[in-house]
Computed example of a mutant assay.
Amino acid sequence: MKHQTVDQLNAVADVHAEATHLLATRGERLERWAQLLEQNPNRVLGALTGTEHQSVETRERMRSAGSPITIAFEDPVFRALGMKEDTYGEAKRFFELTDWQLHGIVCHCHVGATMTARWAASRVRAAMSGRSGFFAWLRGAFMH
């Protein structure tokens, strides 16, 4: 995938300016990410390996094809809002997440090499609420 401007996207897709306005806040972007993941809840996604053990520079460049971050980057609205790539560092910047929050969403130490999109969506919602850990995941898994 390559970054495209709103004008370039308009040439190939029906992008509405009001859609980008509706996702102005961190919470709105995170909610859309969770909804994108829930569109195919049983989809198997790739996890990133050992995010907490990498140097800052390495962690920022980390990516995994078919990860929860890839799902977000595939969204033309997020790209129109300025999401540039599907790396850990870009997701951290774009969604305004801490390393700990993003680690909880994408790292393999919680799920192994793969996860379902439903699980990732519950972790995104946990990051939205500021709660993390097993009970936040459990609540998210049953509430959504």
Rank of each mutant, 00 (worst) to 15 (best):
Gly112Asp: 03
Glu90Asp: 12
Cys109Ile: 08
Glu96Thr: 14
Gly112His: 05
Trp119Lys: 04
Asp86Tyr: 15
Trp100Glu: 14
His103Arg: 11
Leu102Met: 07
Arg93Asp: 02
Gly82Ser: 05
Ala91Gly: 04
Asp86Lys: 09
Phe94Lys: 06
Ala120Glu: 01
Cys107Ile: 02
Ala91Lys: 00
Leu97Val: 12
Leu102Glu: 01
Gln101Tyr: 02
Ala121Tyr: 13
Ala120Cys: 09
Cys109Tyr: 09
Cys107Met: 03
Thr87Leu: 07
Asp86Val: 11
Thr87Cys: 04
Thr116Cys: 12
Asp99Gly: 13
Ile105Phe: 09
Glu90Thr: 11
Trp119Asp: 00
His110Lys: 05
Glu96Tyr: 13
Gln101Cys: 00
Gly89Gln: 11
Thr87Glu: 04
Gly112Met: 06
Gln101Leu: 00
Leu102Asp: 01
His110Leu: 09
Glu85Val: 15
Cys109Arg: 05
Glu96Cys: 15
Val111Pro: 01
Ala121Val: 05
Tyr88Val: 14
Cys107Gly: 02
Thr116Tyr: 13
Glu90Lys: 10
Leu97Asp: 00
Leu97Trp: 11
Ala120Met: 07
Ser122Ala: 15
Gly89Glu: 10
Ile105Thr: 04
Ala117Gly: 05
Leu97Ser: 06
Glu90Trp: 06
Thr116Gln: 14
Glu85Arg: 15
Lys84Thr: 13
Ala117Glu: 01
Phe94Val: 10
Gly104Arg: 08
Thr116Pro: 11
Ala113Pro: 07
Thr98Trp: 10
